[in-house]
């Protein structure tokens, strides 16, 4: 037996396993179906998040000798922040999903842009996980979260404006995005 034989056998088996996974139905999405008309953005909760992450209240409670209450407050607020991060991520996922639908329905696409978006999406998810980890370790990430939220908001506004220009065709794309979100698409 040579090492190269193992490499080849491993490659073939890995490809087979990957194909089995790809052929399996995507996990049924239990999340609420999304429509383009749903203009509810999680960005509107950002002032509340600012309040939640602020250490002023915590310091005030500690100065008053209520360390236990300050700790409980911190835990509660951290949980809220994690929920907010998850919502931000979900909103981002939907926007990039819509971008993919638009790409698939366009007569021509720019491969460089598609690849860049894929790479940036991965990078965004990675960094979001790091931000979460840092928050768990006690770091304050508010300014950066604010910037992140603004960016997501701007993307959403621009996407909505672009889609409105489409008229009847936009309705078709929105329907498809909604259908995809429910996991019952059959486009091919």
């Amino acid at each position: 037996m040579t090492p190269f034989l193992y490499v080849m056998a491993g490659s073939a088996i890995s490809l087979a396993l990957l194909l089995v996974w790809l052929l399996g139905r995507p996990a049924r999405d239990a999340r609420k179906p999304w429509n383009l008309e749903d203009n509810v953005s999680h960005i509107q909760y950002f002032p509340q998040m600012s309040q939640a992450i602020s250490s002023l209240d915590e310091r005030y409670l500690r100065s008053r000798g209520r360390a236990d209450l300050a700790r409980a407050l911190r835990v509660e607020r951290r949980n809220i922040l994690f929920t907010f991060l998850a919502a931000l991520q979900e909103e981002f996922r939907r926007l990039t999903q819509l971008a993919r639908v638009i790409a698939s329905l366009s007569p021509e696409v720019a491969p460089a842009q598609e690849f860049a978006r894929f790479r940036l999406h991965l990078a965004f998810l990675y960094r979001l996980q790091v931000v979460r980890a840092k928050l768990r370790l006690g770091a304050q990430a508010l300014p950066e979260l604010g910037e992140a939220s603004n960016l997501v908001s701007a993307v959403r506004v621009r996407m909505d404006a672009a889609m409105k220009e489409l008229g009847e065709r936009a309705a078709l794309a929105a329907e498809m995005a909604s259908a995809l979100d429910r996991g019952n698409s059959n486009l091919g």
């Binding site: 926007l95 990039t96 971008a99 638009i102 790409a103 329905l105 366009s106 007569p107 021509e108 696409v109 720019a110 842009q113 598609e114 860049a116 978006r117 940036l120 999406h121 990078a123 965004f124 960094r127 979001l128 790091v130 931000v131 950066e144 910037e147 992140a148 960016l151 997501v152 701007a154 993307v155 621009r158 996407m159 672009a162 220009e165 489409l166 065709r169 078709l172 794309a173």
Partner: peptide
């Protein structure tokens, strides 16, 4: 197939990529 006008893709895609890049840089 019902296809979208080509300009829509270029507008939306470049905008999304720009925002993603900025977000990534700031993070």
């Amino acid at each position: 197939p019902e296809l979208l006008p080509a300009g829509i893709y270029h507008d939306v895609s470049s905008e999304v990529n720009l925002r993603l890049k900025l977000l990534d840089e700031r993070l």
